[in-house]
Amino acid sequence: MQRVNMIMAESPGLITICLLGYLLSAECTVFLDHENANKILNRPKRYNSGKLEEFVQGNLERECMEEKCSFEEAREVFENTERTTEFWKQYVDGDQCESNPCLNGGSCKDDINSYECWCPFGFEGKNCELDVTCNIKNGRCEQFCKNSADNKVVCSCTEGYRLAENQKSCEPAVPFPCGRVSVSQTSKLTRAETVFPDVDYVNSTEAETILDNITQSTQSFNDFTRVVGGEDAKPGQFPWQVVLNGKVDAFCGGSIVNEKWIVTAAHCVETGVKITVVAGEHNIEETEHTEQKRNVIRIIPHHNYNAAINKYNHDIALLELDEPLVLNSYVTPICIADKEYTNIFLKFGSGYVSGWGRVFHKGRSALVLQYLRVPLVDRATCLRSTKFTIYNNMFCAGFHEGGRDSCQGDSGGPHVTEVEGTSFLTGIISWGEECAMKGKYGIYTKVSRYVNWIKEKTKLT
């Protein structure tokens, strides 16, 4: 034993070699072989497995989906700052455009905790909710729209109204504003409101030439003092309507412009014939205590009207009353817009006519005020429907199939267009061939041609 100890002390290297040989010859039971080890760690190889990531292109799944990435790591994937920024906006807080917040056709661009709407022409605001041009839906104005110097929408209202708090709607500024039905039992019968379409306001006024200088022999019209197929109006439903009495009662109609003036057809009036105007009328054979009678003290036909040349060209006249009318729910003026808007309103496509005229061709006159909704007829169809001249200051309205029309005794009465609950004068009943005849239409004086003249002559002093 002493000898062994001496050998170990003198030859430590020998001992180490012996131990190493023993270990190498022993069977290893701690580690699995290569094949079995792979069965336990069965993990798919990654895209760049075996390579240094710093030297390969980034992978979106590896960089940002398996674990949260930084902007720089995302930049490695896209290799483009702009594309990385677009991805980053949604990656950080989701897609803010998912709810489609942009209105009126706006395009949404996502941002971090926010979004941006790219608005089409005519709109602005956070969600493109603000109209900035009158060309689109009248700028959301209830009545009139004008573009300011910086191309912003400025709404306005006709006389007797003021802008509401929203700067879009119009509200009454006087007790009985024009064009409004205020009798409670008839307010439910107000005709369907007309909503502004998209309009090209630059070209809204037709490029028409008034044929002022045409000389033409007097034409022989049949029954051209021209509501057939209409309905009984309720008291106060058309408070701007008046009836004219002269040699015979209810020979023509008219509309209240203001307390002192009536507008009617020029062919209705004769110099030297006494005319009485009755406002607030409903049943011409009954006294309903809503009527107001006034005498006409002055007749002003349009300066281009000449019955000797043509009885229905420039067929418009103004009547001055001896005493002002007292405005109330049964006696209310009709609204008159400017030339541009009167023309736009007419193009809405349908209007209402009213009167006490004959209820059928050569038949009896109506006792109760009649009204009828009539569609506008395109000019080409209008011209083809008659052998008589249709001037540019006239328009056609009615039904091709016949059966409904204005008729004798309705002449001078109103053709009105309702705009968001307020009625505007767009025409004056003038003439036609018979009444409600198939293929024939009622012919009306186009008020847009005469609004400046009306307003100039009827100013209240």
Results as ranks from 00 to 15, higher is better:
6 M>G: 11
8 M>P: 11
10 E>R: 04
12 P>D: 06
13 G>T: 12
13 G>W: 05
14 L>C: 08
14 L>V: 11
17 I>A: 05
17 I>T: 04
24 L>W: 09
27 E>D: 13
37 A>T: 14
39 K>Y: 05
45 K>E: 15
55 F>E: 15
56 V>Y: 09
57 Q>E: 10
65 M>I: 12
69 C>G: 04
70 S>K: 12
71 F>H: 06
73 E>N: 10
75 R>W: 04
75 R>Y: 08
75 R>S: 06
93 D>S: 13
94 G>P: 10
96 Q>R: 15
99 S>I: 08
101 P>N: 02
105 G>T: 02
120 P>F: 03
121 F>G: 04
124 E>M: 04
135 N>L: 10
146 K>S: 07
151 N>K: 12
155 C>F: 01
158 T>Y: 04
162 R>V: 11
165 E>Q: 12
171 E>V: 09
171 E>R: 07
181 V>S: 08
183 V>N: 12
183 V>A: 13
184 S>W: 09
190 T>G: 12
197 P>N: 05
204 S>M: 14
210 I>W: 12
211 L>F: 14
214 I>V: 08
216 Q>V: 13
217 S>F: 12
223 D>H: 11
228 V>Q: 13
234 K>Y: 14
235 P>E: 07
236 G>V: 06
238 F>S: 03
238 F>N: 03
238 F>C: 04
240 W>A: 00
242 V>K: 00
242 V>E: 01
249 D>T: 15
260 K>Y: 07
263 V>Q: 01
263 V>E: 00
267 H>R: 06
268 C>E: 00
269 V>F: 05
270 E>A: 12
270 E>Q: 14
275 I>K: 02
277 V>I: 13
287 T>Q: 13
288 E>Y: 04
290 T>G: 06
293 K>D: 03
298 R>N: 15
298 R>L: 03
303 H>Q: 11
309 I>R: 10
319 L>E: 00
319 L>Q: 01
322 D>H: 04
330 Y>V: 05
334 I>M: 01
337 A>I: 01
351 G>W: 00
351 G>Y: 01
357 G>S: 14
357 G>V: 14
363 G>C: 04
375 P>I: 08
378 D>Q: 07
380 A>H: 07
382 C>K: 02
383 L>Q: 15
383 L>S: 15
386 T>E: 07
400 H>Y: 13
401 E>A: 15
405 D>F: 11
409 G>I: 09
418 E>D: 15
422 T>W: 01
422 T>Y: 04
428 I>D: 00
428 I>E: 00
429 I>V: 09
437 M>C: 08
437 M>Q: 11
443 I>Y: 06
453 W>C: 00
456 E>A: 10
460 L>P: 11
